[in-house]
């Protein structure tokens, strides 16, 4: 389980995140909602160990972010908002590339299955020729190679068609249930959040989001 206590992040004089506390249970999908600039991405980066909080503590399955950084990282899957894959490679090559650099070994078959589970069938196709939805799926698949317990997704479905969106959603649900993965998910699509998430975490002060979330 992920436990966040009194998390604060300053950038110079501005307080991006102030005294935030929450927790996520295994198997739970939590939606992160807030207006642009509310600190969604900053929070994800803090949880992903990419940046360091000004104060407060984070612990994953009892491992402190401060003291057990390496162990913590092994359990985190981070899906960046940008499509962080090699454009010139095929899907297969991308999977192999990151498998080689991952902590645990996965066979080629496992990698292949991982993609198939997400309905990503273009195994031998170059990424640059894939559709946006397929690229998003690959972006997600790569983050799952090392079988993380905590999956952090930064707008994973932005700009793709409904079918891929639903497929990704279904896959995440399945994964949360079967592998007891904790998933934190940001999106601007409140319908999607409603459909997918067990809980919603609201940050920022925009009244619009506050009102919208009330309807859940």
């Amino acid at each position: 389980m992920l436990q966040v206590e009194h998390l604060t992040k300053h950038f110079g004089q501005t307080n991006i995140i102030d005294q935030l506390s929450f927790s996520i249970e295994p198997g739970e999908i939590v939606g992160l909602v807030g207006e642009n600039g509310a600190g969604k991405s900053t929070l994800l980066q803090l949880l992903a160990t990419i940046s360091k909080p000004t104060s407060g503590s984070i612990a994953l399955h009892g491992l402190s972010y401060q003291n057990d950084l390496k162990k913590v990282r092994k359990q985190i899957g981070f899906v960046p908002q940008d499509i962080a894959v090699w454009d010139t490679f095929t899907v297969e090559e991308n999977m192999i590339f990151f498998e080689k650099l991952a902590w645990n070994h996965r066979s080629k078959e496992e990698l292949h299955n991982l993609c198939q589970d997400m309905n990503l069938f273009q195994w031998k196709q170059r990424v640059s020729t894939l559709s946006g939805g397929m690229k998003r799926k690959l972006n997600l698949a790569i983050s799952l190679i090392h079988q993380p317990n905590l999956l952090l997704l930064d707008e994973p479905t932005v700009g793709i068609d409904l079918k891929s969106r639903i497929e990704i959603g279904q896959y995440l649900r399945r994964r949360a249930k079967e592998e007891q993965t904790m998933i934190l998910y940001t999106s601007h699509d409140l319908d999607e959040i409603q459909r997918l998430c067990d809980r919603v975490l609201l940050i920022g002060n925009d009244p619009f989001y506050r009102d919208s979330v009330k309807f859940f």
Partner: peptide, 8 residues
């Protein structure tokens, strides 16, 4: 963008 993945 791939550089972001090297934390993990």
């Amino acid at each position: 963008f791939v550089t972001q993945r090297f934390y993990f």
